[in-house]
Amino acid sequence: MRGVVVAAALLLAAAGAAQAGPDLGNWRVDAASDGQVTASLYATNKLITGNGALGYSPVLTLACRPDGEPRWSEWLQLNDAVSASRKITMSVMVDGTSKFDESWSVGPRGKLLVREGDDGIKRLVSANRLLLSWRFGLLSGRGEADFDLAGLSEAVGQIAASCNTDPP
């Protein structure tokens, strides 16, 4: 019986220690072997795949590289490719304010959209919601990803500390 009480006490202590850290919301923080640190978040909405059979949530990733420039970047990972080859125009809306357009690079196989630099991350740190919208192709329609940014400032603080730099 004493062993059960000790195990329960250790479990409660571990749960308390796990809750003592910052609240990252739904953000997942990871470190790669090359030292790059990322924080990723699934969109709250689903996009239907090209064949219409399944839906998926795009993933927004914020990344910090400890060496090199640019140090910070944002990625949007998709399951369906966009038809653009180098750049794509992304419509951005932060906290429901007016939309503005940005140029994002198209990554491998058109399934990764990338924006380098810390200015995009800077504007998100105090935000609650992010809406991204883009065209898949001339006749293919638009994609839209809606993100609940709860825990973002804590996630950015954690990846900046792991990356040994100041948050944007």
Rank of each mutant, 00 (worst) to 15 (best):
M1P: 14
G3C: 13
V6C: 10
L10R: 10
A15R: 00
G16T: 04
A20K: 07
L24T: 05
G25I: 05
N26T: 11
R28A: 14
V29N: 10
V29C: 09
D30Y: 07
A32M: 09
A32E: 09
A32S: 10
D34L: 03
L41R: 04
T44V: 15
L47K: 00
I48E: 05
G50D: 07
G50N: 13
A53V: 08
A53S: 08
A53P: 07
G55R: 11
G55E: 03
G55T: 10
Y56M: 05
Y56D: 11
S57A: 13
S57R: 10
V59A: 02
T61E: 13
L62E: 06
C64Q: 00
D67L: 12
D67Y: 13
G68C: 13
E69I: 07
E69M: 12
E74V: 13
L76S: 05
Q77E: 05
Q77Y: 15
Q77P: 04
L78I: 06
N79M: 10
D80V: 09
S85K: 01
R86I: 15
T89K: 01
V92R: 05
V94R: 08
G96M: 05
G96P: 05
S98H: 08
F100R: 05
F100N: 04
E102R: 10
V106E: 10
V106N: 08
P108W: 12
K111Q: 14
R115C: 12
G117H: 14
D119A: 10
G120Q: 07
K122S: 14
L124Y: 04
V125M: 15
S126F: 12
A127Y: 03
A127G: 14
L130F: 06
L131H: 06
S133G: 03
G137P: 06
S140V: 03
S140K: 09
G141W: 00
E144Q: 06
A145V: 12
A145T: 02
A145N: 02
A145W: 01
F147R: 15
L152S: 01
G157V: 06
G157I: 15
Q158N: 09
Q158A: 14
Q158F: 11
A161G: 12
C163D: 11
N164R: 15
D166N: 13
P168F: 07
